[in-house]
């Protein structure tokens, strides 16, 4: 056992005491990195890199709904079949369904506050898709156009946003 050092050394950091009365409260830092897979949704996030909005549809002729899903799903919740990918035709024009102004957000938000979070109807989709309005003021029924952010890509849903669409 010659590889065992004579004495174990403490190699951690000193811990700050935050409160001492009535109970001792210590600082407990955490900073972690996760590896997050997009799995079968990868085409959606690759699509964002290419300024495309990708959705899925069930191809099963026996499935009643055959709805267009956005957010996409790899499997149909109604018949479990593998879904097929479809690109939403460009330009992607949607209609504001509802919205909120986010004033106070949780830690780590990557957008300046306040900002308008909007939920939009995309033609053909069975869902209402969440995003944010880059500029302007939202109104229910207002048309917006999808924009794809190339600067500092996070490769998350924040790679896209919406802007007011005239016409």
């Amino acid at each position: 056992m010659s590889d065992t050092p004579k004495e174990v050394q403490f190699i951690g950091e000193e811990t700050e005491i935050m409160e001492n009365d009535p109970s001792m409260v210590i600082k407990w830092p955490r900073s972690l990195v996760h590896r997050h897979t997009y799995g079968k949704l990868t085409p959606f996030f690759k699509g964002l890199q290419e300024s495309k909005l990708m959705a899925t549809r069930c191809p099963n002729p026996k499935c009643k709904a055959k709805e267009l899903w956005l957010p996409p799903r790899a499997h149909c919740p109604d018949c479990h079949a593998d879904m097929k990918w479809e690109e939403i035709p460009q330009p992607v024009i949607a209609t504001i369904y509802t919205f909120t102004k986010v004033v106070y957000a949780g830690i780590g938000l990557e957008l300046t506050t306040p900002y308008w979070q909007i939920d939009v109807e995309i033609p053909g989709a069975c869902t209402i898709f969440k995003g944010y309005l880059k500029y302007g003021e939202p109104k229910v029924g207002m048309k917006v156009k999808a924009e794809f952010r190339k600067d500092k890509p996070t490769n998350t849903i924040l790679n896209m946003c919406w802007v007011p669409h005239k016409g």
Binding site: T98, L109, Q117, K130, V140
Partner: peptide
């Protein structure tokens, strides 16, 4: 996590759009 969390990071921002819709 993929389609909502990063757009608000606070639960009030997921209820607020429902409030707007309900009020209308």
């Amino acid at each position: 996590k993929d389609f909502e969390t990063r757009l608000g990071r606070i639960y009030s921002s997921y209820y607020a759009p429902m409030a707007k819709k309900f009020m209308d």
